[in-house]
Simulated assay, not measured.
Amino acid sequence: MTKYSAMHETFSIERKIRASASRVFAAWANPQAKRQWFACHDEWVSLDYNLDFRVGGEERNRVADSNGVLHAYQARYLDIVPEARIIYAYDMKLGEIRISASLATVTFEAAPSGATMLFTEQVVFLDGYKDGGSRRQGTEILVDRIQAFVEREGNIAH
């Protein structure tokens, strides 16, 4: 008999970024730009990536880790306000097993020396999956990577 469970967690990560809110937003919106920073582990192999950045659009990212295990991310964009807010829902799978479902909100505000980006995620871990803080840790890596990307890159087209 399968035991079903749902463990909830919410976390937020804020960064002061030395780039305009427009440039930070563009790094999320532009498929070529996002593909450059949207990875937690450089040694993992990209199998498939697609970004349709619009309300109702989807994003897919499938990678194989160093042991060959498939990690699949699939998102749907629910709300986009240019240079202000992005809201999307996504799920994660290991192999064919769905391990989590999330609602993520990213906000952008102009700041004196650039922009403030706030990432908030409400995640539910499914059916006994023990995250042990790795989702927050992976998201911290992504936030660090987008910050480094926009601070070193010039203009990014939307």
Rank of each mutant, 00 (worst) to 15 (best):
L142Q: 06
Q147F: 01
R136T: 12
Q147N: 01
I146T: 04
L103E: 02
A111K: 00
C40V: 11
S100F: 14
M117K: 10
A89V: 14
A33K: 10
M92D: 12
A110K: 03
F11L: 06
G154S: 09
N61D: 13
D65K: 15
F11C: 04
D65T: 08
S5W: 00
G114V: 01
H8G: 01
S102F: 09
I87N: 13
V69W: 05
E59S: 10
E96F: 04
F108V: 01
C40S: 09
V69L: 13
P112R: 03
R152W: 00
R76Q: 14
T120N: 09
A111C: 00
H71E: 05
A157R: 13
F25C: 05
N67S: 14
T10P: 00
L103M: 08
I156C: 11
D65Q: 15
Y88H: 15
A84V: 10
E58A: 10
R135N: 04
F125R: 10
E43A: 11
S113G: 00
H41F: 09
T116P: 03
F125G: 10
A19S: 06
I17Q: 03
L51G: 10
V143N: 04
A29Y: 01
V55E: 02
T105V: 10
K130L: 04
R136M: 11
W44S: 14
E83G: 12
S22M: 06
S102G: 06
K93Q: 12
L78S: 15
T107D: 02
F53Y: 08
S66A: 11
T139I: 14
F38P: 08
Y4G: 03
I99P: 03
I13P: 03
T116N: 07
W44Q: 13
D144Y: 12
L47F: 01
D48F: 08
T139H: 09
R136S: 06
Y77H: 15
Y4H: 02
A75W: 11
G128H: 00
V143W: 07
K34P: 08
F25I: 07
R54G: 02
S113C: 00
L47S: 06
A157H: 13
F38R: 05
A75H: 14
N67M: 12
T107M: 05
W28D: 01
A110M: 00
T116Y: 04
V143Y: 08
M117W: 04
M1S: 05
Q32W: 13
F38Y: 06
R18C: 03
S46P: 09
Y77V: 06
D52V: 07
L126A: 07
R98V: 14
W28F: 02
V81C: 14
Q74W: 09
G57Y: 04
M1A: 04
E58L: 10
S66D: 11
H158N: 07
S102D: 05
A104Y: 02
R76A: 13
Y4R: 03
G68C: 14
T10Q: 08
G133D: 09
D144V: 07
Y4C: 02
I156S: 13
S12D: 07
N155K: 15
A75E: 12
N155F: 11
A89D: 13
C40I: 09
A29R: 08
L70T: 12
F25H: 06
E9V: 06
G138Q: 09
N30P: 10
W37T: 05
Q137N: 08
G138P: 07
G128L: 00
E109N: 02
I99E: 13
T107S: 07
E83K: 15
A115M: 02
Q36C: 09
